[in-house]
Design a protein around this nucleic acid. Structure first.
Lengths: 104, 104
DNA sequence: CTAAATTTGACAATTATTGTCAATGTGAAA
DNA sequence: TTTCACATTGACAATAATTGTCAAATTTAG
């Protein structure tokens, strides 16, 4: 499940599957074509807003893209860290703890 | 397992358990006392280097502190995100995938 | 009270990120 | 080759974020 792809690569795949040129998509997003090019190749950071707009443009499930987007940011934080996996597990515990203590 | 504490709070606890004033510790770290104060309270970002030095100063297990430090950074990325937990799981998969494909 | 410890806020200096643009590179068509 | 659309690259200034430094204010312990 989306384990071998970055959000940028995924967005490029989606764009190409729709046969849309960067030029058109960047116009819809109202950003420079160079920036979108770099975002797809991971050279510039994506924002949540851009990801959501692209989900809309490509007619693709937004949550799936957001999860990939967030996990990319997480991966960036733990890159090359031996303790990354442990840190992820601790973070999971903490998320669960927060959920539990946040009464609905 | 360290689910209710930030790295800053943990470092403050350690310092207080050793009865060391900020003044002395910040001198050992060669940083301003104000910065260390803010780091302990989460108002300024800690660095890996500072965490390691503090582990040394307090004679505390460095890995445990690093895991907490990294998980803090992860938590920061997914704060308030409904999809945070899913993103963590995907990140775990990806870490495992990377480990597997990186032949030793 | 007083003295040490800590916190707070303001500020300039540094560093990072951003958008913009032009030049360059790539590939397909003919 | 020439042309054309598409994409990439790098340089640059503008903007924003982070940093260290300091002094004043506040809190805490005696």
């Amino acid at each position: 499940m989306s384990t071998e792809t970055t959000i940028g690569e995924k967005l490029r795949e989606l764009r190409e599957s729709k046969e849309l040129p960067l030029r058109k998509v960047s116009a819809l997003l109202d950003i420079d074509v160079a920036i979108l090019s770099k975002m797809e190749r991971g050279e510039r950071k994506l924002t949540k807003g851009i990801v959501l707009k692209l989900a809309e443009i490509y007619g693709h499930n937004a949550d799936e893209l957001l999860v990939l987007f967030l996990s990319d940011k997480i991966m960036y934080e733990i890159q090359d860290e031996d303790l990354g996996e442990k840190a992820l597990k601790v973070a999971e515990q903490r998320v669960k703890y927060l959920k539990a203590s946040k009464k609905k």
